[in-house]
């Protein structure tokens, strides 16, 4: 089956449980994580995840789940389909 991929980006103050909570939200919404890269920049936790969203049915619910996590941990979480980055940065 064809994959539809999206990039999840997470930025915020480093603390315990960020990856756990974000990936739980993803798992609850049937999204498979394909790749993770993560780094700490001046105390700031930044993470990019490539996820497979072809099974995802309800984007609103995912946004809602992310909102809860970001409120709880004080993070900024975005999810955007991968094509937008391909189009903007690759010819």
């Amino acid at each position: 089956m064809k994959q539809k991929r999206a990039v999840v980006s997470v930025v915020g103050k480093d603390q315990v449980g960020i990856i756990a909570k974000v990936t739980t939200a993803l798992a609850d919404n049937h999204m498979n994580v394909l790749d993770i890269s993560q780094t700490i920049l001046q105390d700031f936790f930044t993470m990019m995840m490539l996820v497979d969203v072809s099974e995802a049915k309800d984007l609103d619910k995912l946004h809602h789940d992310f909102d809860e996590v970001s409120k709880e941990l004080g993070l900024k979480i975005n999810i955007q389909l991968e094509d937008i980055f391909q189009t903007m940065h690759r010819i």
Binding site: V7, S9, D35, S37, T39, T46, M48, L50, K76, N78, Q80, E82, I84, F85, Q86, M88, H89, R90
Partner: peptide, 17 residues
């Protein structure tokens, strides 16, 4: 991941800030 970290950040920065 074949898109660089910096490029993703650039797009997000453009939209959000």
């Amino acid at each position: 991941m074949n898109i660089a970290f910096a490029e993703i950040q650039e797009t997000i920065r453009m939209v959000q800030m």
